[in-house]
Design a protein around this nucleic acid. Sequence first.
RNA 1: GUGAGUGUAGCUCAAUGGUAGAGUAUCGGACUGUGGAUCCGAUCGCUGCGGGUUCAAAUCCCGUCACUCACCCCA
Length: 416
Amino acid sequence: MSEIKAAKGTRDIFPPEIQKWQFLENAIHDYYKKFLYQEIRTPIFEHSELFSRGIGSETEVVQKEMYTFSDKSDRSLTLRPENTASVVRAAIENNLFETVAPLRFYYIGPMFRYDKPQKGRYRQFHQFGIEVFADDSPQVDAEVIFAAVDFLNKLRIADIRLELNSVGCPRCRPLYLEVLRKAARAEGGRLCADFRRKIEGNPLRIFDCKLPECAETTRDFPLLDGHLCAECRDHFAAVRETLSWMNVPFQLNPRLVRGLDYYTKTAFEVTSGQLGAQNALLGGGRYNNLIKELGGPDMAGIGFAAGMERIILHLENPALPKIKNLFVAYGEQKWLAHAIQLAEVLRAEGYPVYLDFQGKNLKKQFKKADKIAAAFTLILAEDEIASKSVSIKNMASQEQKKIPLKDLNERLKKNY
RNA sequence: GUGAGUGUAGCUCAAUGGUAGAGUAUCGGACUGUGGAUCCGAUCGCUGCGGGUUCAAAUCCCGUCACUCACCCCA
């Protein structure tokens, strides 16, 4: 038993689960290229300021969940809790807005949040996501949402639900928040402490409270959709219309908010009925002020991030192409050189070949061949070497034939 | 940060407060040019850790740590 364990909230991924990860990663690469997204990889850690400015210093993520540390030169660095701020930073820093077209990126990688682990929630977890810059048309919102939902459908993830809202923009949201605060303060006495804290700091979140009294109270509170400015309202209507053209079903949820401050206008979330409490598979929205906020041009952006662990929980056992492993058996140590050379030739031909160096005799070697699920065992021992041949045994059917060495490749090809 | 449940062999799990066990896996043998099946044998444990109660603790009590789930938060 090992003394040192994986740090809390982290885990090792190995077969057979790793096959799901490889499958998912390949699917992401294949799918998003169809929309001309290009992969971007940004550093795992960044200056802390990127996140406090980008995500919002009042958010839970920044206040409570960041892995922040000082390096030896006293720089404050933070393991990225999400990737959008980094992608925006990279685009600004490398002038991608001028040099790359189209301005569409996707990413895959680990993120870090200091949270108490539970089902579907880890301290090191993985997200993939997409970002589109410089396009404020509502049709892009719809296409991004389509590319999120359709991807999950392609993975045959059932029982998912798309929720949609508009969280307004800096012109209309502050006005609404005042209206909401006023209504909330009037009811303050009836509400939980948590709730009262949110009224001042993050009023949109008060709708989240699941305590019956709070939910009861907030039911009649004014909602944001009645307070959107004309531009946000029209934008949102066009998003919904485009989604209907795309046959993407959605549910309006006027109480839907996002945890990061940078969102404007469209906000959406896909949840799964098959997960526990951590049921959000992906979330995203538009962030038309983030790029400027981080020192870039006044440019629109939209994207989403998806939790890969949560998607993996939905994936069936790997339906992998059967790999036909070859096993080279040599019986006695003195034929090992021949076996090594044969294995080398076969690998160069593209076959996966296993050679057991511990097997003392053919019996042991066959046992090992069985254990690694070899499709064919090639026997190269005294008889075969003397006659420049090799015996090939089909492990499933138990058929065995001795054939000339020079015919081996052709014969294997037929069986593959 | 709060709460609940669970910690026994590599894995899955047993064991009224009274000798820590089974299945499986691993290794060896039956079987020195042939695997899976069967049979025989062997290895494997500070019962998470630290205290306490008791003649006696895997078992009861306290603490602690880990895992799991929920709150919270979010993907």
